[in-house]
Amino acid sequence: MKVNTTNTEHYKWGASCDGWHLVKTPGLSVIQELMPAGTVETRHYHEQACQFFYVLSGRLTMEVEGVFTELSPFEGLEIAPHRWHQARNETDADVAFLVISQPTTRGDRFQIE
């Protein structure tokens, strides 16, 4: 079955961000996310999951262990388990990107409250 943001599970995260589960299995997660201008996710790490962030449109700043990397469309960044990280939209436009996780991050996210 073809999947896209109109026929998959949608969820809200943070104050105003969106996510769509394109693939949702225990071994693999592919999520398309949309972060409005000026939004920031909570800094966290994963015990098991390796993640790959891939920008579709806009610019995404990824902070990983204190190092900031700006990603433009069609650029990506891999994040190994146990690495503190945070996605940030520091621009005045929306950013759309894919988050690919292996295995899934369900129950694998650790953050300081």
Score class of each variant (00 low, 15 high):
Y45S: 04
D108T: 11
N89T: 15
Q32I: 01
I112C: 08
I31Y: 00
T6E: 15
D94R: 03
V23Q: 02
K12V: 08
S72C: 06
N89Q: 10
H46T: 05
E63M: 07
G58A: 02
E70I: 02
V55Y: 00
L77M: 09
T39R: 02
E78D: 09
T5S: 14
G27L: 06
R83F: 05
H44I: 06
I31N: 05
W84T: 06
M35Q: 07
P73W: 03
T6P: 03
L98C: 05
K12D: 15
G66I: 06
R59A: 14
T42P: 01
S57G: 08
K2P: 08
T39Y: 00
R109N: 14
E65L: 02
Y45W: 14
M35T: 04
I112M: 09
N4F: 10
Q51M: 05
W84L: 12
P26C: 13
C50M: 13
A87K: 01
K24I: 02
R88M: 15
Q48D: 12
L98F: 12
T104D: 13
L28R: 05
E9P: 01
Y11H: 04
T5C: 13
P81T: 09
G19Q: 05
R43K: 13
S16C: 04
E47T: 11
T105L: 09
E70V: 15
V55Q: 00
C50I: 02
T25E: 15
L28T: 15
I100K: 02
G76T: 10
E78T: 12
S101M: 04
F97Y: 15
L71K: 09
E70S: 07
E78M: 12
P26W: 06
E47H: 13
H10L: 03
Q86G: 00
Q51P: 00
L77R: 03
A49V: 07
W84C: 06
T25G: 04
H10A: 12
F68P: 00
W84N: 10
A49P: 06
S101C: 15
T105Y: 03
M1G: 14
T5Y: 11
G14S: 10
T105H: 03
E75R: 05
R109H: 09
N89F: 12
T105E: 08
L34D: 01
R59G: 01
Q111A: 15
V23G: 01
W20Q: 04
Q102H: 07
C50K: 12
G107F: 05
C50E: 10
A37S: 14
A15T: 14
A15P: 03
P81I: 08
V30C: 08
N4I: 11
G58Q: 02
V67R: 08
E63P: 01
K12R: 12
T6S: 13
H46P: 01
A96H: 11
V55T: 02
T8S: 13
V95P: 00
T8Q: 10
V23R: 02
F68M: 08
E9S: 11
V30G: 05
T69F: 04
P81M: 14
F53P: 00
F74V: 05
W20I: 01
N4P: 12
H85F: 09
M62T: 04
P81H: 10
P26F: 07
T69H: 12
M1A: 13
A49M: 14
V99H: 01
L22G: 09
S72L: 12
Q48H: 15
V64M: 06
E113H: 09
I100W: 04
L28I: 14
P81D: 09
T5W: 05
Q111G: 07
V40H: 10
V64I: 10
